[in-house]
Write a protein that binds this DNA or RNA. Structure first.
Ligand code: NAD
Ligand code: NAD
Lengths: 217, 217
DNA sequence: ATTCTCTTGTGCATTGGTGCACAAGCAGTA
DNA sequence: TACTGCTTGTGCACCAATGCACAAGAGAAT
């Protein structure tokens, strides 16, 4: 579809960090950003920054750096952030409600436009200006609102069912908090956030305290 | 300290998934687990499972598989899960409160034993059986409770300060939700969970919808 | 004892990621 | 125009991770 040249996974995972760093530089008045500046703010090697950015095209100027505004536009284009991406949260328990209240998604281009739960306790309730709708109406909720991202915040044992329903409803990518492996078509990308897993990973490095790092990929 | 042979990062990140799969097999009555079983539940390649587990030692039996209970013990030993690891949450806003209410940490060996905030609105409040203590008392809170993990759930601009305070207080590893790069000594491992970043990564893969995967590392 | 079946453990080739080091090239100055 | 200072873009060598493929070994059956 897009004529872009295929960006390595490791690079894609860093683009949002560069973006954040860049926004920071811009808001502090800089109009150009060098790879060294970005490397510093992003906590990585400057050569890596340059190689990563080179996948977007040749937007740097030797001897000067990158034009900050231009680079931001290019990163946004690569990440598909030119347009807003509406999100639905499924599962309005502890976590789902915290996510619904969080303003950070809206401001980053991912407005939360619908909330869904299966429990009668939750359905109909108003949370942060949105009325919780029923899981059975998911397909309609998704299509009516043009939703393309689904966030799963249900217990693990409901996650696969919710996942299937989201895919059927036409959601194009999924972010899950449920600690379980989801089965889904290759055409729908998933990211998993599992907090207990993160703590367990820390346990390993903490145990052999003494230096090795534990970078989040 | 431990005479263990140094486990690759990629393997460490998968051990918690194997652990979860193993617990699942055990609770469904299995007493042995083959690499194929585990691979299936964990959503990875069977050869990878075997190579990963081989870093723990030689606990499999050819023709049979792994003794489930024994393997669980070995994974727990590698991850330092033999003993409970007390946790403090700093920042009792939306997210901090959701985390405090979540029972999953306790049951996975990471009891939340203290809650901290800097705002007078929050300090003194009781949440889930714990009284929120003041940020200025962090050092005492950490040492009195033998806390070794700190979770940062404050806004990004307070995160570095909180991080420094946690390290000074003697915390041995950190999990942060603040969307910012933290500066801290190599001896203290960190893991970062950044939800906006996750959504942006999904944006890339969604844009070039058509097959490439987007595995969480 | 021999054979057959099943599963581990690992050697090896391949792929992906990292970072050093340097030539290429722009801007500003004289 | 020629020179200087700075920063990009990338070739290259290294290291980590992946997964195929197979020999080695365990147990069951005959
Ligand atoms: N709360 C946390 O801080 C936290 C931390 C780490 C992981 N998690 C994970 O996040 C998930 C949610 O956690 P939580 O604490 O919010 O749980 P919760 O029990 O508070 O909320 C779960 C919600 O999902 C709803 N639900 C159940 N089945 C559903 C279905 N089929 N369709 C729609 N909604 C359904 C329930 O009605 C409930 O409102 C869990 O998988 C949990 O393991 C939560
Ligand atoms: N809520 C979410 O769903 C969500 C999602 C993604 C990321 N995050 C990130 O998690 C962090 C917390 O988000 P939130 O929505 O809970 O924010 P919040 O504003 O609701 O809560 C922040 C809390 O931190 C406290 N605080 C501020 N400075 C402090 C300090 N120095 N020491 C101790 N406490 C301090 C505040 O008093 C407040 O109670 C933010 O960095 C946010 O970007 C939150």
């Amino acid at each position: 579809m897009s004529g872009l040249p295929e960006i390595p996974d490791a690079t894609v995972a860093r683009l949002p960090i560069y973006r954040r760093s860049l926004v920071q530089l811009i808001s502090s008045g800089e109009s150009t950003a060098s790879s060294a500046d970005l490397a510093d703010l992003a906590g990585v090697n400057a050569a890596k920054v340059r190689k990563d950015l080179s996948y977007l095209g040749t937007y740097g100027v030797r001897g000067v750096g990158y034009d900050a505004e231009m680079l931001l536009i290019q990163i946004d284009r690569a990440l598909g952030l030119e347009f807003e991406t509406p999100v639905v949260i499924v599962g309005m328990g502890n976590l789902g409600q915290a996510l619904a209240h969080y303003g950070g998604f809206q401001s980053k281009g991912f407005p939360i436009v619908a909330l869904v739960d299966a429990s009668d306790d939750k359905v109909g309730q108003e949370i942060d200006g949105l009325t919780v709708s029923h899981f059975d109406d998911l397909a309609r909720t998704v299509s009516e609102n043009g939703i393309s991202v689904g966030i799963i915040a249900t217990p693990a044992d409901a996650a696969q069912k919710v996942c299937d329903a989201l895919v059927d409803a036409g959601v194009r990518s999924i972010l899950t908090f449920a600690p379980t492996v989801l089965q889904l078509p290759d055409s729908v990308p998933v990211r998993k956030v599992d907090l207990a897993t993160e703590l367990q990973i820390l346990g390993y490095y903490q145990q052999r305290e003494g230096g090795e790092d534990a970078e989040t990929a």
